[in-house]
Design a protein around this nucleic acid. Sequence first.
DNA 1: TAAGATGATGCACGAAACATGCGAGATAAT
DNA 2: ATTATCTCGCATGTTTCGTGCATCATCTTA
Lengths: 155, 155
Amino acid sequence: MTNALDGFDVKLLAALQNNAALTNAELGEVIGLSASQVSRRRQKLEEAGIIRRYRAALDPEALGLMVTAYVGVTLGAHSRENARKFRNMVTAMPEVQEAHTLTGDVDYMLKIVVPDLKALSHIINDELLPQEAVHHVRSSIAMETLKDDNLLPLK
Amino acid sequence: MTNALDGFDVKLLAALQNNAALTNAELGEVIGLSASQVSRRRQKLEEAGIIRRYRAALDPEALGLMVTAYVGVTLGAHSRENARKFRNMVTAMPEVQEAHTLTGDVDYMLKIVVPDLKALSHIINDELLPQEAVHHVRSSIAMETLKDDNLLPLK
DNA sequence: TAAGATGATGCACGAAACATGCGAGATAAT
DNA sequence: ATTATCTCGCATGTTTCGTGCATCATCTTA
């Protein structure tokens, strides 16, 4: 069982994460393969979990989501229970697009997208800060987005 | 010309950003509309630019991309020319998934995805820091990812 | 080196999904 | 009440997809 990705696979993945609306024939034209082979390779990549899902990328501003912010959260007493609560809350919040635990003095980094500053303020002051575990919150608003494609670099 | 999104549109967008592989018939079943209507509304949403593109979401770890880091960059002398160079460089780097200018003391926030710490070190020390404009770089490695779907919150 | 096995490829064809014309129904304005 | 506008589902022609099959390349083993 050879599961290594060859050049075709890498090209295919690159094409698909750029534009998943292309037909197998068009993809084949781009990477130099027949449509049927594209179909087969695609299926394998999906089954292997390398292709996780297909998604429509929406325009935030067209939907009235004007504010993106990065919020660093520092927990106080690192009690297991409070931390668990915090994580559950954060992952359940639709405004939170990304949430990571970090090295260094800031424990969590959240990427938040909301319609306006009022909504951001509400999240920080009425949802995050009241949490028992939360000790300190530092938010920074994204003024200009230079890049936001989340495309993975394929060697 | 009425361009307001109704409930159907919102439901459709929500479904599509979760799973763009659904057929129009399946989508119609979910939101309570016929396949043909789904097709038409979809076309409109695409033409209006609300649906930007369709993308395959890949598994970073399956591709050997094990390290995600947030890198805050502070510029020194804010000369127009140096800043421009920095921005061009950053947007051209495939490892940079997101790049925003921020409010506060940190000028830029970069989200970087690379295979390993060596690659991260290389980017910071050999690509970012040598830039004339760059005064200070502070990087924080994401240890655990709680959420990374980048789904927009649809009211 | 020969021979067998494994896997990848393009072609062809049946099945599935899509796009669109059309008439019916609903809503709003005159 | 009537006309105009818009949205709807149905039906149908077209495109796209998935898979069986024979061929070709590569690798293994004797």
